[in-house]
Design a binder for these strands. Structure first.
Lengths: 218, 218
DNA sequence: TTGACATTCAAACGTTCGTTTAATATAAGT
DNA sequence: ACTTATATTAAACGAACGTTTGAATGTCAA
């Protein structure tokens, strides 16, 4: 029986190239020829390994973005597990940090994923449902459980969802609108500026959630 | 001398069709043939009136999005001019309302513009600088002036800019990530939900800015 | 009516697209 | 050595793309 082990080489190179090119230019603006050229393989390899271009795109989400999203979520959980009783600001800070400062992903990976998500939101190809159902919704549930103890008791589910969405709005916006933000603020997206952003988001969101609480990390 | 008056007919139909199609599908995914078919004119009309496809795209921003953006900004100003001494929450409420609930634009126009901006951010064709310089930056200046009196005196420019960016992050996110938000919240983007969102954003941002202040509009 | 210009039109240009095909290469099982 | 399944290749397919062309049509001032 033929082993299925060493199939990964060219197939993975295609996934790598597709992930980067789709993130940089969007689904429609990237040709299969570009992808196979970047992956240093034959044009027909995409159709052989993935059936067609669209399925390759979806596979990028399934095999890269979703697993990495789960790792980021896990990193958020781990950050909080270290603290016995995390304060509200700790929860938010951990969330912002996991998504745009540290965590298991490199900055290049974070930017790629943010762009892929932003493009998929702007022009859905069919990957958004996968990400929402497998990453976003579970993360939302977890964040909601973490936040609830710090909020007023009588808060309904929808209000809490909107609050969490607002935190994500800031995180994703500062992550994906980098070009516009750099042009407005006049600052580059270096390590220093990102730390500044995480602190700002933490402070803004903590106050926005309705509980003033000083940050006691460090 | 030939009048230049009645040239507007087909040219405007092309701009209308291009605005809608570019917003729905993005620059690369829309063909000139699609546009001219929707505008009920000949294929060559785009190149005749606008030179090429890219220039038509930029002209959509110059002749539609920028003027409408200025009208929205003006609407924000007018809303505040009605009040002698607007509270902090009034400023934010007026901003959120102008951008996603009421104002001079229809809901379809708002959604189109939000999509065009989101796509241009995700994949810049060359229109973003126009919008930032002609609409965003002046609006930011105005908002900053409105907010400053309500904040601590010693706040630096960059901190204030980040705060304003956070408000815009929420407004634009709730405007453009409609599909994702609907899937997560399980709610449609009808009038009722939008009012809910404006109230939520106003409350969250007002608190986030660091001044608790009750809303006293009706 | 005529001339001059603005606009529209059908047709074709060369290019690139996603996909398919058939031939070949590779390597393990028998 | 032969079979079998997996993988890669060059070449071509039809379709759609943005753009150009040159003739036809519309529109007014002269």
């Amino acid at each position: 029986m033929p082993k299925k082990e060493n199939d990964g080489v060219a197939k993975d190179r295609i996934l790598d190239a597709a992930e980067e090119l789709f993130a940089q230019n969007g689904y429609a603006a990237v040709s299969v020829r570009q992808i196979t050229a970047a992956a240093r393989c034959n044009l027909a390899a995409v159709n052989y390994h993935f059936g067609n271009k669209k399925n390759l795109y979806l596979e990028v989400f399934r095999s890269r973005l979703v697993p990495n999203g789960k790792r980021v979520s896990q990193s958020f959980e781990d950050n909080l597990a270290a603290r016995p009783e995390p304060a509200l600001s700790d929860v938010i800070h951990a969330l912002a940090q996991a998504f745009l400062e540290e965590g298991p992903l490199t900055d290049e990976e974070r930017e790629r994923h943010a762009q892929l998500m932003a493009r998929e939101m702007a022009r859905p190809i069919g990957a958004m449902e996968i990400v929402i159902d497998e990453v976003m919704r579970p993360l939302f549930e977890s964040v909601a459980c973490r936040l609830r103890p710090h909020l007023m008791e009588e808060i309904d589910d929808e209000s809490l969802t909107l609050k969490i969405l607002s935190i994500f709005a800031m995180v994703t916006h500062f992550n994906f609108a980098r070009a516009a933000i750099s042009r407005i603020t006049g600052r580059e997206y270096n390590k220093e500026f990102k730390t500044r952003l995480v602190d700002h988001i933490s402070e803004f969101a903590t106050k926005g959630l309705g509980m003033m609480q000083r940050e006691d990390d460090k």
